[in-house]
């Protein structure tokens, strides 16, 4: 073979170039995020832990019908107010089996109230438990108080007044929310 071919086979310039790439990374900034001291903040539309507001909920069961895995369980009873003799539907049971939830958000889309009574945009992703079956079955009370769930710093549970329009759960401000699904361009 010719001399240049022989030299290029002998002196591995391609290998040195590869070494230069990895060697250069010794001096660059590293990408590691030291969890759990630092947590990355999810974006505003992040589909995280559920928030549920039983005050707003009108018990239409559209969320249960929309769920692809049928993990929302609703039960209600009719209560008669003794003074006014008016009948009222009261939700006795609103359970979500979170261990099978795939956080697809179809329940939030199906909810007709404004803002929705069930919402996922709560920036919280740390709900891990040691015991699966009891730990990940959220009834009405637990969906409200978020017992056992570690909220992202700054996010409040529905019991503390999380506003579904603001994923961080702050008090509603005068600015419009970015979670605009009406089809009007916001960017």
């Amino acid at each position: 073979m010719r001399l240049t071919d022989f030299l290029s086979r002998l002196i591995p310039v391609d290998l040195f170039k590869g070494l230069a790439v990895t060697g250069g990374y010794l001096l660059k900034r590293k990408e590691t995020v030291q969890y759990p001291e630092k947590r990355l903040e999810p974006t505003d539309r992040f589909r995280g832990m559920f928030g549920y507001d039983s005050e707003r909920c009108i018990d239409c069961a559209l969320c249960a019908k929309a769920c692809p895995i049928e993990i929302i369980y609703l039960a209600d009873k009719v209560e008669i107010n003794p003074e006014t003799k008016k009948k009222k539907k009261v939700i006795t049971r609103y359970d979500i089996d979170v261990k099978r939830c795939m956080f697809c958000g179809l329940c939030e889309e199906a909810c007709p109230t404004e803002p929705p009574s069930i919402w996922l945009t709560s920036k919280t992703y740390e709900g891990a438990v040691y015991e699966r079956n009891d730990g990940l079955y959220f009834d009405k009370q637990r969906l409200f108080t978020w017992q056992g769930v570690q909220p992202f710093p700054g996010v409040r549970s529905p019991a503390e007044g999380q506003d579904p329009k603001d994923p961080m759960g702050r008090r509603p401000t005068s600015e419009p929310a970015t979670n605009d699904a009406s089809g009007e361009p916001t960017s």
């Binding site: 990895t22 060697g23 990374y25 010794l26 660059k28 590293k30 990408e31 590691t32």
Partner: peptide, 8 residues
């Protein structure tokens, strides 16, 4: 090895 791989 980790420093070359963008991590610690």
């Amino acid at each position: 090895l980790a420093w070359m791989q963008v991590r610690i």
